[in-house]
């Protein structure tokens, strides 16, 4: 949806100084930080005994595995199945 009440959006100046995140190396750093945090929280299963709500969620790494697999599944199903079925040109209904 595009509105026209704010027609002129200011654009970046050509001499704009790059920000920290604009460097690819820094983005990789962020990704690595995430990998480390993930490792830490999953290993916390050892010192902290999680009190289980069900018979199966007490197993080591259950939530991590479920979250990871669930998300990957979600994206892949949406991309490879759902999108194939429902995708239409943007102006599909404008006739």
């Amino acid at each position: 949806m595009t509105d026209h009440h704010e027609t002129e959006v200011p654009m970046a100046a050509p001499d704009e100084a790059p920000r920290w995140l604009d460097r690819k190396a820094n983005v990789t750093k962020v990704a690595w930080a995430l990998y480390i945090v993930c490792a830490v929280v999953i290993l916390l299963d050892f010192p902290i005994h999680r009190h289980a709500d069900t018979s199966f969620d007490g197993n080591f790494g259950f939530y991590g595995a479920y979250g990871f697999i669930g998300s990957v599944m979600l994206v892949l199903v949406a991309k490879n199945i759902l999108r194939r079925i429902v995708k239409r040109p943007e102006d599909y209904y404008d006739d």
Partner: peptide, 26 residues
């Protein structure tokens, strides 16, 4: 402890999935 940890694990690994998918172009 267990509620917080479970939730944090779920969310961070979900974020991990996003990161991996983006970085691999999937």
């Amino acid at each position: 402890d267990s509620h917080v940890l479970a939730q944090v694990q779920l969310l961070f690994f979900s974020a991990l999935a996003f990161t991996v998918l983006i970085r691999t172009g999937l």
